[in-house]
Amino acid sequence: MKKKNRVKNIILGILTVLVILIFSFPFLWMLLASFKTQAQIMSTEDVLLFKPTFDNYKSVFEQYDFLDFIVNSLVVAVVSTIGSLLLGLPAAYAIARYKMQKLSLVILVARIVPGITFLIPWYILFSKIGLVDTYTALILSHMLVGLPFIIWVMMSFFEGLPHEIEEAGLIDGATKSQVFLKIIMPISGPGVITSSLLSFIFSWNNFMFSIILAGDKTKTLPVAVFNFISYSETNWGALMAAACIITLPVLIIALVAQRYIVSGLAAGAVKG
């Protein structure tokens, strides 16, 4: 019996290593390519053994002004996430507590519908009121997807909290808003962290809205990376360096907050 279990563990370990290698290979190749010259990237020799260079990262920041794009992406992602939380948390709590099934269905439909469906009406609206190439247009467009996601994740979390917690607060003299802010929100930390992080990651990586609504002043990182590709040549070294810069914050967030993400997606830490 022990021998069979040992064989199963060995097979499981081998399969786990294979899965990790398969999924991590594109990132590792991207990381290695960011330290290569254009000729080294195109060559099939010495894939792993080469003399690294930092010229790609220097050109990204010096030649392409990548720091401005980082600031643009950071502003849009942070503000759109905060705005979605301010609107989405009370909405999710109200839907969960008062059983607004029809409204929850509308939120679900808004979550399922592809964002490209709203792109043309969104562009026409913003162009009419002169908001194209502004932070406002990008933030609102990102909230269009982030807000329904936060509401849908937090609805299931709030539904898992027992009503006795709120009743105890009301008996002690707290108002409903005080119960929500001082009792419900502190114990909903995993759900809030999960929804906000995933919303931030969506906004940070979003390309579709930015390619249409952003301009020279508000160009974000995904659009800036796209500019490395031209009809005549693709600057693969700078492209890989820029891709690593975009990926690094998301990777750090995933590693640091993975515990909260897993517990938050479990739809509530307290069950009634």
Rank of each mutant, 00 (worst) to 15 (best):
Y231K: 04
V71F: 13
V60W: 01
I41S: 01
S80D: 00
L18P: 00
N205W: 02
S84I: 01
P249I: 10
T53K: 05
T218Q: 06
T220S: 02
F202M: 09
F35E: 03
Y123E: 05
I10H: 08
F228L: 13
S195V: 05
N72A: 02
L85P: 01
D133F: 05
M185K: 03
I229G: 08
L248W: 05
D55M: 12
V47L: 15
S141F: 10
I261V: 13
K2I: 15
V192R: 01
M100T: 08
E159A: 14
V78N: 03
V145P: 00
K4E: 14
N5T: 10
F27P: 04
L221Y: 00
I201L: 14
A92K: 01
M208Q: 14
S177G: 06
I14K: 06
A94H: 03
S195M: 04
S196D: 07
F25M: 09
C244H: 04
A254W: 07
Y98E: 14
V256W: 12
K217W: 09
I11K: 04
R259Y: 01
F27K: 06
F50Q: 11
S177F: 14
F126C: 07
I14G: 07
T44V: 08
A238G: 11
S127Y: 05
T37L: 11
M155P: 05
Y231M: 08
Q38A: 10
F27L: 08
I120E: 04
T44Q: 12
L181P: 01
N235F: 13
A257L: 10
L161P: 01
L89G: 02
F23T: 14
D65L: 09
A241N: 02
W152S: 06
M143L: 04
I183H: 12
N205Y: 09
N5Y: 10
L12C: 11
L87Y: 02
I124M: 12
V17T: 09
L85F: 13
V113C: 03
V76I: 04
K58P: 00
L125N: 06
F157W: 06
F158Q: 03
L221W: 09
I193Y: 10
I253D: 03
T136N: 09
I184K: 00
I107Y: 12
L48H: 06
S80M: 03
G115Q: 09
V78Q: 03
K102N: 13
T44Y: 11
V250Q: 05
C244W: 09
Q40T: 08
L12T: 09
I193H: 04
P121F: 11
T53C: 08
Q101Y: 15
F35K: 07
Q40H: 12
I201Q: 05
V47D: 00
A92F: 07
I95Q: 00
P121V: 07
G268P: 03
K4Y: 15
A39R: 13
T175M: 02
S263F: 00
T117H: 06
L31V: 13
Y98L: 10
G160L: 11
G83P: 01
M1A: 15
V223Q: 04
K58Q: 13
I150C: 11
G88C: 03
Y260N: 14
F209W: 15
W236K: 08
F207W: 10
